[in-house]
């Protein structure tokens, strides 16, 4: 499903964020990517939807060599992935509902179906009654859930979440984890970056341990 072989990523400016990283994630797996801040977790995640391109090695997602993808093919790749960004990237000029509906407007879904799917996604994360609110009015945990709803509204087979529990109190964090696990249970492949060791310990799944851009426990 997702396969990295000997992937290195050097940012312009010379910093090598990933060095020779290789691993494979099968369909339906739940994988945590951990490591201290600056270890390269976000960089690794950004290579999957081709937000960043590898400087060496290959990244293959659903049989496609993502690193060599033409510009015009990238939107289709991204529409089939669910992405939760470390900084949420919510739009504060529109409602919760419109934020979730945004990815559906790029495709060919009829407006009525798009509205129905949007409500279904909001319902899954428990934000249906806040659909008219502006994201700015939401708590940190609610904003994170909103970001998850937007990521899954296209019903992706792969969900990639970057630090989904960062800066949240314990209750909110567990709620997020519960939601993510519920997607895992229905077969969604889950890649979650976190530096929260307690979270990883509790769920004891497969862990990709990064340190200074290298993989330790693949």
């Amino acid at each position: 499903m997702i396969s990295f072989s000997a992937v290195s990523k050097r940012y312009p400016g010379g910093l090598e964020a990933l060095r020779g990283v290789s691993f494979t994630i099968e369909a339906g797996e739940l994988v945590f990517v951990t490591g201290p801040s600056g270890a390269g977790k976000s960089t690794l995640l950004k290579l999957i939807p081709a937000i960043e391109r590898p400087t060496a090695g290959s990244v293959v997602v659903n049989g496609q060599n993502v690193g060599a993808l033409k510009r015009g093919a990238i939107p289709y790749l991204r529409r089939n992935l669910g992405l939760v960004f470390q900084d949420h990237k919510l739009l504060y000029d529109r409602s919760v509902f419109d934020n979730v509906m945004l990815p559906l407007s790029f495709g060919t879904l009829a407006p009525r179906d798009a509205a129905r799917r949007t409500r279904a996604a909001l319902d899954k994360v428990g934000l249906l009654e806040r659909e008219r609110a502006n994201p700015i009015q939401l708590s940190g945990g609610e904003q994170q859930r909103l970001a998850i709803a937007r990521a899954v509204v296209n019903r992706p087979a792969v969900l990639v979440a970057d630090e989904p529990t960062a800066n949240l109190d314990e209750d909110s964090a567990w709620r997020i984890v519960d939601i993510l696990l519920s997607f895992h249970q229905v077969g969604v492949t889950l890649v979650v970056a976190t530096h929260d060791q307690a979270l990883v310990a509790r769920h004891g799944r497969r862990v990709l341990q990064l340190a200074a851009g290298r993989l330790a426990g693949a």
Binding site: P75, R78, R79, L91, F106, N154
Partner: peptide, 16 residues
């Protein structure tokens, strides 16, 4: 700017 950036990250084509 933000709407365009986020849309692209989530799979909006250049044409869109």
């Amino acid at each position: 700017r933000e709407e365009i950036e986020v849309s692209r990250l989530l799979g909006a084509s250049d044409g869109f």
